Amino acid sequence: MLPAFETTFAVPLSCESCIKSVSTSLLKLDGIHTVSASLPAQLISITGTAPPSAIVTAIQSTGRDAILRGSGRADTAAVCILETHSRTVRDSVRGLIRMVEVAPGTTVLDMTLRGVSAGRYNVTVRETGDISRGAASTGGIWDALQAGQASSAKGVFGSIEVGAGGLGSVFLDKPIGICEIIGRSVVVSRQEGQFDREDADTLVGVIARSAGVWDNDKTVCSCSGKTVWEERKEQTAKGML
């Protein structure tokens, strides 16, 4: 059984009834242990084993949006934004992987794809973080040489099945630590082997550290002056999940 971890979300809350509505929706999910809220801070905190993407969906079902503000302890969370390098695609962002190390050497991964063709997609962590030429410049599968066979390498994260609507998701755990994969790249594709051609359904991204719970209390970006909700609207329009 996976250890529980804490996740915090910014949610527009105007009254105690809002908190009750969101809490009721969240507690219907499998894996939710506790839900708490702060009206002044406009934050919802959840402890459990439910995927962050499922939590967002549950909050959105109440008519409110949600922005992930932090997961797990400090230095135990990571994120990977997946993009296609195909020039035929207008909105290049097509996926997201959220990662939390819930115990030493155990990391959960919440992977979501949107706007790609139906089919089975292989998910692998690569040797380098070079995505300058898309999947072709990322190197081999991480840990494949040490493991002897690519299929048993730490860098094989399994697969995602995408339906006819172009949406797919998977929630799984791997025996790795966040520190092992920071700075490496992820390739999500129906292709295998050497990526000698780019297509709209081959996605790449670099794994970067993400904020732990209570590490990120930003409400206005110091660079643009935009609120987190204005940034959220812009990123959603670009295809961010």
Rank of each mutant, 00 (worst) to 15 (best):
R197T: 08
A41H: 14
K154V: 09
A66G: 14
A66Q: 11
W142D: 09
T24S: 11
L241C: 06
S210N: 10
C221Q: 01
G140D: 11
Q149W: 08
S224T: 06
L43H: 01
L203M: 06
R73L: 15
L172M: 08
T112R: 09
E101G: 05
S45V: 15
T227D: 09
A103R: 15
H85A: 10
A237W: 08
I19D: 12
A147E: 07
S92K: 12
I182A: 12
R98P: 02
D110F: 02
T88P: 07
A147S: 14
P3S: 14
D217K: 13
R114P: 00
G225M: 04
I55C: 05
T138C: 15
G212F: 11
L13Q: 12
A211Q: 04
L27A: 09
A54M: 00
V204C: 11
G183T: 10
D215A: 14
Y121K: 03
P51Q: 10
C80Q: 13
G63C: 11
S25Y: 06
A58H: 02
V213C: 15
R90A: 10
S86K: 00
Q146C: 10
E83C: 11
S189T: 12
V79P: 07
K154M: 13
L109K: 02
V123P: 01
R120W: 00
S36D: 13
I32R: 06
P40E: 01
A136N: 03
L27Q: 13
I81W: 07
Q146H: 08
R69F: 13
R64N: 04
I141F: 03
S23P: 06
I141G: 02
L43E: 04
G115C: 11
G177K: 14
V102Y: 00
D143R: 07
A74H: 15
H33R: 00
A200I: 00
H33V: 00
V162T: 00
F171H: 01
V156F: 04
W214R: 15
Q146D: 12
A147F: 04
C80P: 11
V93M: 05
R98W: 09
A50F: 07
A208Y: 06
S151K: 13
R197H: 08
S17A: 15
D65A: 15
I131W: 05
L39E: 14
S224V: 06
P12K: 06
T227F: 08
P40G: 00
M240F: 05
A77M: 15
